[in-house]
Design a protein around this nucleic acid. Sequence first.
DNA 1: TGACAAACGGAGGGTACCTCCGTATAACTA
DNA 2: TAGTTATACGGAGGTACCCTCCGTTTGTCA
Lengths: 208, 208
Amino acid sequence: MKAKSAHSSPKPRADSIRNRERLLVAATKIFSADTGHASLEAVARQAGVGIGTLYRHFPTRETLFEAVYRHEVEQLFALAEKLSRGGDPAESLRKWLNANVRLVATKKGMVEALQLVTHGSSELKNYSFERLTAAIAMLLDRGVAAGVFRSDVSPEELLRALVGIFYSQAAEKWQPGALRLVNVLVDGLCRSTGARVPRRSLRRRGTQ
Amino acid sequence: MKAKSAHSSPKPRADSIRNRERLLVAATKIFSADTGHASLEAVARQAGVGIGTLYRHFPTRETLFEAVYRHEVEQLFALAEKLSRGGDPAESLRKWLNANVRLVATKKGMVEALQLVTHGSSELKNYSFERLTAAIAMLLDRGVAAGVFRSDVSPEELLRALVGIFYSQAAEKWQPGALRLVNVLVDGLCRSTGARVPRRSLRRRGTQ
DNA sequence: TGACAAACGGAGGGTACCTCCGTATAACTA
DNA sequence: TAGTTATACGGAGGTACCCTCCGTTTGTCA
């Protein structure tokens, strides 16, 4: 007899996995592009599956949102992993932060997404907080070890600063401001240890 | 010849005015009651007018939202006027603040409303800021004049505190906390001048 | 009271939501 | 490889909502 105990997950079929993946990709695209109110049928169309399939995988709009969000957090984590494997620590951190800004910037339907995170399951909140903190930690630790970053800023603090930057700038045309602040942040991290600051990040500074 | 210059508004018909009023009332009710996504057809039904009439008065969902919001700000202002005409200043202020809490509490569809205020026309933002500040000023000045309130808190500051209370508590079951904070606020205003503090507001205090 | 601009109502065409069930197929067995 | 079956798929269809358009009604003014 096959090991098919009542409680272990019975391993989904290959097409099921594939379709789930497609839906996630499609949803990411549609949600980003559209102005806030994307239709689920559009997502299904984009994914090349029937509407029924969408609903089987994601019974409610929220589950789909949540999955997309999770997926993006995972990708950010993966990027951090990759970036922290080599290259200048300050540049790596800057790149990762920029990726964050860009991600948020393309989220036209972000309003709903943000609501989800703010009012949604605390499980999801915890997950993303933990994951993003870990991502930042990876990037940060390397720089600290190399003596490039000051050592008195924790990953949690940095994450909060990041959220603050996004939140406070939640107006039109916020991206330039956010990017500038991100640069300030990285510069600040570097400078106060007396470490060499990458030239690029100094360019914008005037007198003062 | 009738004064009907090309630019002055040609004075709307009586039924037009009446229907607009009805729609506003209906919308307030529906938006408050419903869970975030009220249908415009429901509003029209509730108002007892045809859907076409709704669209003629409020071409988009946003215009309707905005009108409702304006209307409520006006009512808050009127309430402040009434309250500041007599009675204990502290009690008046408390009543007004409580009205605020209750108003926000019934706004299930508040999420959208808040979005409107945050991202909407700055004209509307200015209007409500000005109106609410004026309302608070009325209530505050009287108490200051009577020596019941401390005099070093401006209406603007109080308004900001209020917004902060609402915003920070934007979770489930926030109303008790918000009401408590409002009480703390009023008590604080009174206490620090050495003025008598209404008994009610002390009741909740335990040791410490 | 008559004439007409202004306002009304709601039918209708289009889209999106979500369910349900007949059909297809991946996975496993002999 | 063929047969079997649980699993997953697709999309038709009923409902609700959006918004426009236009024939009808009504307030207003002379």
